[in-house]
Amino acid sequence: MRRPEGCAGGGAGTVTRRIVLATHNPHKVAEFAAIVAATRPDLEVVGYDGPEPVEDGVTFAANALIKARAAAAHTGLPALADDSGICVDVLGGSPGVFSAYWAGHRKDAGANLALLLDQLSDIADPHRTAQFVSTIALVTPEGAEHVVEGIWPGRLATSASGAGGFGYDPIFLPDGQDRTAAELSPGEKNAASHRARAFAALVPLLSEV
């Protein structure tokens, strides 16, 4: 289904253009919408309701492009897609691109988190360093493509804490913080997260939208 480019008004002369986020995850849509609104209030982020493509890439960039291309083709709108995950240094960068499926193909966030904690149960704090990585692809219906990356460094806690966020947020302690990403307010997280950093790199490229 093609979505028309909307002209919505917050006031006279205000034009809102739609950009589709290639995900069925409502948490990601809400997080991206807040990040985009802070710098590009003229863009309205809408969720993707089309078929999910097979994410058979072996890098964040490959999977982000697969999703963004599919969403742009299905909707006729410029499309953003984020492929992200947590990379643990002592595990050689894993779970990485397999973060969503670390405990199996059910995409069970709780099981993923519990398995990662169990694997690191004997690892001392100095060796629990990790990074959240976000790769964002922008694809336009005309075929223009851009890929940017954001990295949020930190370390892993020994137990989960906090009710906010999603995924591995309850065990991720960003550098300079004694609170997990799940204990930060949405505003604090959206100002510092890997997605916010990737989107900041993307902003200069959004003139194509």
Rank of each mutant, 00 (worst) to 15 (best):
P4R: 03
P4M: 07
E5S: 10
E5A: 14
E5N: 14
G6K: 10
A8K: 02
A8M: 07
G9K: 11
G10L: 12
G10F: 08
G11T: 06
G13D: 07
R17P: 06
R17W: 01
R18K: 08
R18L: 08
V20D: 01
L21V: 03
H24T: 09
P26R: 09
F32W: 14
A33S: 15
A34R: 15
A34K: 14
T39G: 15
R40N: 07
P41Y: 00
V45E: 05
V45N: 09
V46A: 13
G47M: 06
G47F: 04
Y48D: 09
G50I: 05
P53N: 11
D56T: 05
D56V: 05
D56S: 14
G57T: 06
T59D: 14
F60C: 02
N63W: 07
K67I: 04
K67V: 03
R69V: 01
A71R: 00
A73N: 06
A73P: 04
H74F: 11
G76V: 05
P78H: 03
D83H: 09
G85H: 01
I86K: 01
C87S: 13
C87P: 08
V88I: 11
V88H: 00
D89C: 10
G92P: 04
G93I: 09
S94R: 15
R106L: 08
K107A: 05
G110K: 02
A111Q: 08
A111L: 04
N112V: 02
N112K: 00
L113E: 04
A114Q: 05
L116T: 09
